[in-house]
Design a protein around this nucleic acid. Structure first.
Length: 165
DNA sequence: CCCTGATTCGC
DNA sequence: GCGAATCAGG
């Protein structure tokens, strides 16, 4: 599969929108594996995984059967994906980043460290519209957002009681 | 069984 | 680099 800049852009957008990998795959006419794989390679912010593989108790010694020749590829269902389909969800609030738990590990209260690579994925504007973009500011380590937007994204539930009402 | 995302590894 | 196969939790 050839990942064009446009497709990567779409992937990043949908990923930032909080769509599931399968849903992104459906929209782009690719498999969820392709989505996850590419997202991983793009170093997109990983979303809370339902599983824990890297646990201490996890035994890597799962002797998986050697994989044989790949099966004949199915014809692409439909490479077409909506450039801008009507979506009634303009709210720039990410799907569920709030569930991001406070780090159990006591983090040193140093200045917010940043990586040179990761940029803030906070959506600016309505996704799908021409003016849409990402914040793009340097993201905090381990977070998909810059300090400014992380403060908005990660808000304790009890602090949001007004909004929840 | 359905869903989810992560990882592996032949290609 | 790619992504199906596989793994693994809910």
């Amino acid at each position: 599969m050839e990942w064009t800049e446009e497709q990567i852009e779409t992937l990043r957008r949908l990923w930032a929108e909080g769509l599931s990998t399968a849903e992104i795959g459906r929209r782009m006419g690719i498999s969820k594996n392709a989505v996850v794989g590419k997202a991983h390679r793009l170093h997109l912010p990983a979303r809370p995984s339902p599983i824990r593989r890297g646990g201490e108790g996890a035994k890597p010694a799962a002797p998986r059967p050697p994989r044989r020749t790949l099966r004949p590829a199915m014809p692409r269902p439909s490479p077409l994906f909506p450039a801008a389909e009507p979506r009634p969800a303009p709210a720039p609030v990410p799907a569920e980043p709030r569930r991001a738990p406070a780090p159990v590990v006591p983090m040193p209260r140093v200045e917010p460290l940043r990586t040179g690579n990761a940029t803030c994925c906070w959506p600016i504007g309505d996704p799908g519209t021409p003016g849409f973009r990402f914040c793009g500011a340097p993201a905090l380590i381990g977070k998909p957002y810059c300090a400014e937007h992380a403060a908005i994204a990660y808000v304790r539930v009890k602090d949001r009681r007004e909004d929840a009402a």
